[in-house]
Design a protein around this nucleic acid. Structure first.
Length: 804
RNA sequence: GCCGGUGUGAUGGAAUUGGUAGACGUAGUGGAUUCAAAAUCCACCGCUCGCAAGAGCGUGCCGGUUCGAGUCCGGCCACCGGCACCA
């Protein structure tokens, strides 16, 4: 009979769902294992071949863990709020909820078609009120503890769509949708104080098992730098605080620069003789997009503040103050001391404006460029009491000098910014706060959660950039929970990243309506043992969810300060030409087509076999059939019930033991491609030495995490007991993985000349004799002295010879 | 510019971490089977010279360490990803 994958896969998928084969149990005696993949955003395009790569990988891990006796939680859900759905809904005059519902059912069918061992009873959807109730609850706790605040800040404003865009919607400085210019515009936004957790987010990376590139990327993003805060007196009577990582170079500070937005400028306005010029520069800077300010405007520009100056605290000299957009308002204090001799940006600015450049650290030529290297042993010059000292010694001494006079101290700065948490959009979680003229911002009462999204007929953003909810008077007008007076609801919604920041906790107890999850469930399942996801989420979702988790830990909701013990990441699947798959290139592979032609098991095998799991790899439509052939060959071996008992055949025993070891190890190390190659080799062996019932039983056991449907079907055909996926993961006998004889390399002078067969673990003298006995080797060493013999056990022998 | 990664046959990729480079798959070539094709099975399949036995070369480039280097060290080159005026 032919291998009818369509019928077989349908049969087993229905069986697994009906029997809840992959259910996870709260409070179970077995050890727990929590394997997690990033839940999908249910887009209108449906699943694409990129999705199943990480899903299959952790499905294999989850299936292996079950076979190893664990109570495995391998859940799935949908990250369903978000812009694409809303835009699609607007364009097609549908309700986003309807769009979401349709997309989710398509995704569900596709995921089930691939045979993943998810516990479907724990499926969560972030846009459902019983889910976002708890997203709102967490936000409310942030607010109550002063970690959510509203502030006016520049946002991305599309000049054509007349609406606020998220950073992700700004591509190359223009609007992702219409291609128009995006400018900065002040808007009042809710913010979350992730910066308060910066040090902990950094420190705790040392305690988790994340792949190194994820850790490095997060560390760079958090961007901790140690330096000093130094106060410069202005003659206008105010202090200007600056941050520097090079307090040793203070003697070289010949001018100062403030960010155009710096608050002192307004304060000094009356004293500035060129205030018009200053204002013009400020306006210019404000109008520029981030893109123009950074990517395009590398050329230094600025305006001197005429009428004020500052005093360099160590030299006592008066130095000019400028404003320039090369100083960022959002980092440090928004002001710098400029040391043109030792900072390239300051150097360029000084050159342009004809400012003095003083060398204070020896080592470069400051007339040509700034000498930037922080060489700890370099010697200080032109630096008063630091002269002749090394940089290493100068830094602490300067900090001491400054702090004794109370004009500076050691301090730490982070690149990490607070998280802009508002979106002027409909399809997101409503922010559960109301504004009361008397009481200010007040959270709704907890028992009033969830604050549900109102039904509206139009989801369009408004001309003034307000949320569509802003014009729903009935919904907006409410009473203050505090004083009972009239109040208005917050009309902004939460960003896409809110729901996904804690979803891994909801899986533990998805139907709980009194808590985000019960304490029992949390303490049983915490933490996630293995989390795999995309590198693109490293500094977004992954960082955000670590932040929320730490906050929940402080609240006492979770017992650990980190959510995920282990984090790995998969490479992308590219189009056949090696480019990114995209609709516009027309090179997107739809898993449905592959499943229809070859079956889900083949697709699963192929995407795991295609290459190194961690690297990007191009799709190949011809190579898929290699995996189909492999399954066909297995089918041919096992479709008819084999005779005999369930022991291994003598001829295949050794290869089976080797395969058990290799496949098991490879799964742990995410070397899925070589695990499958091992199984292919084993099948090739079986074509040489006909397998017994026992041989096949082990093959199917090892195959079942990778290709669960065919494994189950053949298991049944062979009449083995139970399900293949419920077998105990096999053990191997190390002694039986070793060959009795080894073919080893024989080198002469380090060059491979021949191979000889030796008994396993043969003593060195015997290896030498066998090597010498080889005809070719004998010829080569004739008339030579053997100066040295190197033997690597069971691997090689190297003879160093020289003429007699 | 800074940080991270990668360079191996026609091709996707292996190589137990310093020990026989090219496992496994795809493509290709030859053969078996077939009226024929598909499918399947068997064999070959890094390059150069050679009828052959064999010899030489070969993991981006140049150098080094070592009995021995795809793997370690130094210096380049190319490509990919992230960040980017972060003081």
């Amino acid at each position: 009979m032919k291998y009818d994958f369509t019928a077989i896969e349908k049969k087993w998928q229905e069986y697994w769902l009906a029997h809840k084969t992959y259910a996870a149990f709260n409070n179970d005696n077995r050890p727990k294992y929590y394997a997690l993949i990033e839940f999908p955003y249910p887009s209108g395009q449906g699943l694409h071949v990129g999705h199943p790569r990480p899903y299959t990988a952790l499905d294999i891990v989850a299936r292996k863990r079950r076979m190893q006796g664990y109570n495995v939680l391998f859940p799935i859900g949908y990250d369903a709020f978000g812009l694409p759905t809303e835009n699609y809904a607007i364009a097609n005059h549908m309700h986003p909820r309807e769009v979401t519902k349709t997309n989710i059912s398509r995704f569900t069918a596709q995921l089930q078609m691939l045979g993943f061992s998810f516990d479907w009873d724990r499926c969560v959807v972030t846009s459902e009120p019983d889910y976002y109730k708890w997203t709102q609850w967490i936000f409310m706790q942030f607010f109550k503890r002063g970690l959510a605040y509203k502030t006016s800040m520049p946002v991305n404003w599309c000049t054509s769509c007349k609406c606020v865009l998220a950073n992700e919607e700004v591509v190359g400085g223009v609007c992702e949708r219409c291609g128009s210019d995006v400018v900065r515009r002040e808007k009042s936004q809710w913010m979350l104080k992730i910066t308060e957790f910066a040090q902990r987010l950094l420190d705790d990376l040392d305690e988790v098992d994340y792949i190194e590139r994820v850790k490095t990327q997060q560390r760079n993003w958090i961007g901790r730098s140690v330096g000093a805060e130094v106060v410069f007196k202005a003659d206008a009577g105010d202090d200007i605080k600056v941050f520097t990582t090079r307090p040793d170079t203070l003697f070289g500070a010949t001018y100062m620069v403030l960010a155009p937005e710096h608050e002192l400028i307004e304060k000094w306005a009356a004293r500035l003789t060129n205030i018009d010029e200053v204002r013009a520069y400020q306006n210019d800077a404000a109008k520029k997009s981030d893109f123009e300010r950074t990517e395009l405007a590398k050329d230094k520009s600025g305006v001197r503040l005429e009428g004020v100056s500052a005093i360099n605290p160590v030299t006592g000299e008066s130095i000019p103050i400028f404003i320039s957009d090369y100083v960022l308002a959002s980092y440090g204090t928004g002001a710098i001391m400029a040391v043109p001799g030792h900072d390239q940006r300051d150097w360029e600015f000084a050159e342009k404006f004809g400012l003095p450049i003083i060398e204070v650290v020896k080592g470069g030529d400051v007339t040509k460029e700034a000498y930037v290297a922080k060489d700890e042993d370099a010697i200080m010059v032109n630096s008063g009491f630091l002269d002749g000292m090394s940089v290493k010694a100068a830094i602490p001494l300067m900090i001491k000098w400054l702090s004794e006079r109370d004009i500076g101290r050691e301090t730490v700065n982070f690149k990490l910014r607070d998280w802009v948490f508002s979106r002027q959009r409909y399809w997101g979680e409503p922010i559960p706060l109301v504004y009361c003229e008397k009481c200010g911002w007040v959270p709704v009462l907890e028992e009033q959660l969830p604050v549900k999204l109102p039904e509206v007929s139009s989801y369009e953003t408004t001309d003034d950039g307000e949320s569509p909810l802003a014009h729903m008077d009935e919904w907006v007008n409410t009473t203050c929970p505090h004083c009972g007076g009239p109040a208005k609801r917050e009309t902004d919604t939460m960003p896409q990243w809110a729901g996904s920041s804690w979803y891994y906790l909801r899986y533990l107890d998805p139907h709980n309506d009194t808590a985000l999850a019960s304490q029992d469930a949390i303490s049983y399942w915490h933490q996630v043992d293995w989390y795999n996801g995309g590198m693109e989420h490293t500094t977004l979702h992954l960082l955000y969810s670590r932040f929320w988790h730490k906050f929940l830990y402080d609240l006492g909701v979770v017992p650990t300060s980190e959510p995920y013990m282990k984090r790995t990441s998969h490479g992308m699947i590219l189009g056949e030409g090696g480019e990114k798959m995209s609709k516009s290139r027309g090179n997107v592979v739809n898993p449905n087509d592959i499943v229809a032609e070859f079956g889900a098991d083949t697709l699963r095998l192929y995407i795991m076999f295609i290459g190194d799991f961690e690297k990007s790899v191009p799709w190949s439509s011809t190579a898929v059939k290699g995996c189909k052939r492999f399954l066909d060959r297995i089918w041919n071996l096992a479709e008819n019930k084999l005779p005999g008992d369930e022991t291994y055949s003598a001829k295949n025993e050794r290869e089976i033991h080797k395969a058990i070891k290799k496949v098991g190890d490879d799964i742990e190390n995410m070397k899925f491609n070589t695990a499958i190659a091992t199984l292919m080799s084993l099948v090739n062996t079986f074509y040489e030495n006909a397998p017994t019932r026992g041989d096949i039983k082990m093959l199917l056991t090892l195959l079942s995490p990778f290709a669960p449907h065919i494994a189950e079907e053949l298991w049944e055909k062979q009449g083995f007991k139970g399900l293949a996926c419920e077998q105990v993961w096999p053990k191997f006998d190390p002694a039986k993985t070793l060959d009795a004889e080894k073919e080893i390399a024989v080198q002469v002078g380090g060059k491979l000349k021949a191979t000889v067969i030796i008994p396993l673990d043969a003593p060195d003298e015997m290896v030498l004799e066998l090597a010498k006995a080889n005809e070719k080797i004998a010829r080569l060493i004739e008339g030579m002295d053997i100066v040295k013999v190197i033997v690597v056990k069971n691997k090689l022998i190297n003879l160093i010879v020289k003429p007699k």
